[in-house]
Design a protein around this nucleic acid. Structure first.
Lengths: 191, 191
DNA sequence: GTTGTTGTTGACCGATTGGTCCAGAAATGT
DNA sequence: ACATTTCTGGACCAATCGGTCAACAACAAC
């Protein structure tokens, strides 16, 4: 009969994701992963496959959870336009300097790893769809012009948000980052 | 008497920068650098110092040249507002998928390498100053409201531009990227 | 207690890593 | 031609890399 695993796979996955996030994929060694998880190589390989498979899994987990968060944000306000504003302001948080794990990984690896590029592409298409639906709702509520292309505007909002995220990554202080996010929100969304 | 170097240090620096840009810092080995430059280790170490020093030098060269390009763009139009639009559109180019070497490196390394973070911070402060001067000029020319904070607006423009740059990095196709850049330009700048 | 199955550890592997150092080569002045 | 100085290549180094695999442990059914 099977012996159950003696560790929480999801909890370990999150701990390992944090290491990939902070150090990057290439600068994270199996030694690091073993130390952080408390597991031996055999256990890591059995549970997650090789290093790259493990990394992709942490990335997918991050994207899945991120999209859940995005959905929650987009549904968090009575008026859709307020939710869109919240999306733009979302990079302003105490963890701003870490940036976005997906963005960090895409910047580091997109040229040499088609699978990472594919993950990013799919993730941003999904986010674009989610934001597009919210834009359409704001249009229906009369807060955004009904004649503009919802998807095109969604892409612009996403690009602006990713710019704010990156500014956070560069170490811009939080007050300044908030000002930038608010300024962009004021210019892109009605008040 | 001193024997002169038998290779062009600047040309080699550019070739090595391209490798760091495409593969990232950590995934680039001395073996790679030797193969690309055609030099032995002794020559690389003598000319550029260790791997990290070489990397920082490629980054600084990139920033210096980038700022020259930014200055040129900001002075390339009779009206300053048109130059600002050009800055927003600058990520739309055949090399869009490579993204920005500074951004890639910052995303990969900022958490673990304070010197890279410091380079990024300084670089973006310089870019912000350059764009602020251009915004002020556009205000003088009556194309932008005179009562808005030039530097704050410059930061927003830079954030938006960095967002477009990153969208390029994710592999968004060029026509779509151009649409996003144009849309943001239309919304942030008068036409 | 025994048996069967799965989990775990870490030795082992070949390869690669970043960096040092020295012998020989090349450039240049005398 | 010789002497001096710097450049160059690559041997050498200890350490680390990602991954495999076998011995032992643990779990569970009988």
């Amino acid at each position: 009969m099977a012996r159950p695993r003696s560790f929480d796979e999801d909890r370990v996955l999150h701990e390992l994701r944090d290491r990939f996030w902070d150090a990057g994929y290439s600068a994270t060694s199996l030694q690091d992963l073993m130390r952080i998880s408390g597991l031996g190589k055999g256990s890591l390989y059995a549970a997650y496959g090789d290093k790259h498979s493990l990394f992709l899994r942490t990335l997918r987990t991050y994207v899945t959870e991120g999209n859940e968060g995005l959905r929650a944000t987009l549904e968090s306000e009575p008026r859709a336009v307020d939710a869109l504003r919240k999306v733009l302001l979302s990079p302003v948080n105490p963890g701003a300097e870490r940036g976005c794990f997906l963005a960090n990984s895409t910047c580091e690896l997109a040229t040499q790893h088609a699978d990472v590029r594919a993950e990013a592409r799919q993730a941003y298409e999904t986010m674009t769809e989610l934001i597009t639906a919210c834009v359409a709702k704001a249009q229906q509520e009369g807060d955004l012009p009904a004649d503009q292309d919802a998807k095109e505007f969604a892409r612009s909002l996403l690009a602006a948000q990713q710019g704010v995220l990156y500014m956070g990554r560069t170490g811009m202080d939080l007050d300044m980052l908030r000002s930038v996010a608010n300024d962009l929100a004021d210019r892109l969304l009605p008040r």
